[in-house]
């Protein structure tokens, strides 16, 4: 325990040594990048060498999380959090305040920010006012007034979602379930031909449609909350959860390759862009 606390206050010698080694390794990398650079001037080579080395350092720092938490991960994490928060704030300011509000609010501001003025609209001032009201949260006494803009956003989207999701998620999904349970019956001989799963033989197609319908119904039964899942109902619900699990597994397996290719991308960056040994 004592050593643990000691570690917290000042890094142990081992940590210091690791820090120094890492610093030296990356310094060497920077120098070698700068001396082998292809840019026009030495300054450009030094700069580009630094940038690529720093990116590699951040990459390895994040990978180090796989081992455990450590100062390198903390460094990359905290830097990234600060930088990205500012990134989205600036982007929001330029695209929404300058891009959306200013062109409808003021000619002078439009000229100042070099955006084409469109037309005055008091609607935008109302939005701005709601935004300012939101900032009242920071005042201890007037915090409650900040619920107005909140109400605007939540009320609007609740109404928006209600009819649209009823249409897209609910009705169209129900509508698509009306598949023919016997695909164009053309006699038994034809029905039992072409039995491969990939082919669109009649039996396979019809069986598929049956499974979809039964699956949808059992899945819906699983989502019944106000009825006990017992007897027939329970059996249907269990079949429903089985079909859900098959689907989840498929979705899991399907995603694996995509994620591996992301990893390959990072490894390529390290070995090719940074170390140039691929």
């Amino acid at each position: 325990m004592a050593t643990g606390n000691g570690n917290r206050k000042s890094p142990s010698n081992a940590v210091k040594i690791i820090l120094v080694i890492v610093a030296v390794v990356f310094l060497i990398s920077w120098i070698s990048k700068a001396t082998t650079g292809m840019a026009d001037s030495t300054w450009l080579n030094i700069r580009d060498g630094f940038l690529i080395t720093f990116a590699a350092f951040l990459t390895l720092s994040i990978f180090s999380f796989l081992y455990n938490d450590n100062p390198f991960y903390k460094f990359a994490e905290h830097l990234y959090v600060g930088v990205s928060a500012a990134y989205w704030m600036c982007l929001g300011f330029w695209s929404i305040i300058v891009g959306n509000f200013v062109p409808h609010a003021s000619k002078t501001l439009s000229t100042f920010f070099k955006v084409p003025f469109q037309e005055y609209s008091w609607f935008y001032y109302v939005a701005f006012a709601f935004g300012v009201i939101l900032l009242m949260r920071l005042l201890p006494k007037a915090g409650w007034i900040a619920r107005w803009p909140l109400a605007v956003i939540i009320g609007t989207t609740a109404g928006f979602n209600l009819s649209r999701y009823l249409h897209s998620d609910f009705m169209s999904q129900v509508g698509n379930t009306f598949q023919p349970l016997f695909v164009d019956w053309q006699g038994a001989g034809h029905f039992f031909s072409n039995l491969s799963l990939a082919a669109d033989g009649q039996l396979v197609m019809s069986a598929g449609n049956w499974i979809v319908v039964v699956g949808v119904l059992c899945g819906l039964v699983y989502f019944f909350f106000s009825k006990e899942h017992k007897g027939m109902f329970g059996a249907a619900s269990r079949l429903g959860i089985w079909i859900l699990m098959i689907t989840f597994g498929a979705s899991f397996g399907y995603t694996v390759m995509g994620r591996i290719s992301l990893l390959v991308g990072r490894i390529t960056f390290l070995f090719d862009d940074w170390l140039s040994i691929l």
Binding site: Y165, L166, S168, D169, F170, M171, Q173, V174, N176, T177, I211, V212, V213, V214, G215, V216, L217, C218, G219, L220, Y222, F223, G240, I243, L244, I246, T247, F248, A250, S251
Partner: peptide, 14 residues
């Protein structure tokens, strides 16, 4: 099965 499960979830979610 994927289609069936997704549809059941989507109807519920809707």
């Amino acid at each position: 099965p994927n289609l069936a499960a997704k549809r059941a979830i989507l109807i519920g979610v809707g």
